[in-house]
C-alpha cells in the first residue's frame, strides 16, 4: 500500500478566477514541495489544460489525474476525476453540449488561457466557462460514474455553489464516492492545537485514528468517532441530517486558484494512484483509507 498526500481540486490559468501563476510547471513544483503524491486538475467545465500539467509532471513521480469542476444546472459544483485523457475528453463532449454559447467577458471575469507544459500561451478560450451547464447533479454523477470516473460534490461547506446550500441535502441514490470540504471549513477552536500538528517529516501514515474520515463504515464506528463528529458538526451544522442515513467519505481539497493556497490536507492509503483506488479509500473498503490532516497553524 502507498500513503499519498492528495489535492484533487486545483485550478489553472484556464479558470478566469485563477491567478496567472497557475501554470503547469509552477503547479507541479509547488505540489512536490508540499509533498503531494497525487493532484487533480479541475478547471470550470473544461479540461483543456490537463494534458499540459500531466506532461509537466512527467518523470517527477507526481500523479496528475485529469478532471474538471462541472457546474450543474442547479449551480452545484461537482468535481469529476478520471484516470485517462481519453475519459476526460469523452466527458468534455457531454459538457460542451450542455454549456451555453456565451462569450467570456475578460474585463469582468478574467481571461481563460490554454497553455503548454512550459506554461506558454497557446490560445485563449473565448466561451464563458464558469457558468451553469444544463446537466442536473444526477446527470453529472451518473455520466462520470458511467465513464469510470469519480464524482465528488465540491466544497459542500461553502454557502454558494455547493450541493448542501443549493439543494439542502444530498439527494438519495446519487452515485458519488465522497464529498469535498474546504480547509476553511475546519473550526480550529474546537481542537487542541497539539492534536492538529501535521507530521513535520511527512512520513505517512502517521495519523491519529480520531481523525479518520471513514464515514461509510458501520453506524457504531461513526458514533464512536467523537472527534470526527465534532469535526463534521463544525463543517456544517446539520450535516448528519443533511446527508441522511448515507455515509460519505470526506476529503479536504484546497480548491486553489493561486500557488500559495495549494495544500496537503488529505492522505489516502491505496494500492495505486488510480480513481478506483481513491473510490475505495473514500469508502474505507478493502483496507484503503482516507485520513484528513488539519492546517498546521
Amino acid at each position: 500500500m502507498l500513503s499519498l498526500l492528495i489535492d484533487l481540486h486545483l485550478h489553472t490559468v484556464l479558470s478566469a478566477c485563477a491567478e496567472v501563476e497557475m501554470i503547469p510547471p509552477l503547479i507541479v513544483e509547488r505540489a512536490l514541495a508540499l509533498g503531494l503524491g497525487l493532484i487533480g486538475i479541475a478547471d470550470h467545465n473544461c479540461a483543456a489544460n490537463v494534458g499540459a500539467v500531466i506532461e509537466a509532471a512527467r518523470g517527477t513521480g507526481l500523479t496528475v489525474l485529469p478532471g474538471m469542476e462541472v457546474q450543474s444546472r442547479e449551480e452545484v459544483h461537482m468535481l469529476c476525476v478520471f484516470d485517462t485523457l481519453a475519459q476526460v475528453e469523452a466527458w468534455q463532449r457531454t459538457v460542451d453540449d450542455a454549456l451555453p454559447e456565451l462569450p467570456n467577458r475578460e474585463d469582468y471575469f478574467g481571461a481563460q488561457y490554454v497553455v503548454d507544459a512550459a506554461g506558454a500561451h497557446r490560445y485563449t478560450e473565448e466561451r464563458l466557462l464558469a457558468t451553469s451547464t444544463s446537466l442536473s447533479v444526477e446527470q453529472v454523477a451518473v455520466g462520470v460514474d458511467t465513464l469510470g470516473g469519480l464524482c465528488i460534490p465540491a466544497h459542500i461547506d461553502r454557502p454558494s455553489f455547493s450541493i448542501l446550500s443549493n439543494l439542502g441535502f444530498i439527494p438519495q441514490g446519487l452515485p458519488i464516492s465522497g464529498v469535498e470540504i474546504t480547509p476553511r471549513a475546519i473550526d480550529l477552536t474546537k481542537f487542541g492545537s497539539g492534536e492538529l500538528a501535521i507530521a513535520e517529516n511527512r512520513t505517512f501514515p502517521r495519523h491519529d485514528e480520531r481523525f479518520s474520515s471513514v464515514f461509510k463504515g458501520s453506524d457504531r464506528a461513526f458514533e464512536q468517532d467523537r472527534t470526527t463528529e465534532m469535526y463534521l458538526t463544525s463543517v456544517w451544522k446539520s450535516v448528519k441530517y443533511n446527508t441522511g442515513t448515507a455515509r460519505y467519505g470526506v476529503l479536504v481539497d484546497s480548491d486553489a486558484h493561486r500557488l500559495a493556497d495549494m495544500g496537503a490536507h488529505t492522505c489516502v492509503r491505496v494500492a495505486a494512484p488510480t480513481v478506483a483506488e481513491l473510490g475505495l479509500a473514500l469508502s474505507g473498503e478493502k483496507g484503503r483509507r482516507t485520513f484528513l490532516y488539519l492546517p498546521a497553524e
Partner: peptide
Amino acid sequence: SDLLSCVMAGAAAGNVWVTLQCHPNVVAV
C-alpha cells in the same frame, strides 16, 4: 429563494414558495 438550505431555515408551514429550482429535492423540502 433558490437556495434550498435557506428555504429549510426560512420558510414556514403553509407558505407558498417561489423558486426556479426544479430538482426533486424541492418536493422533499
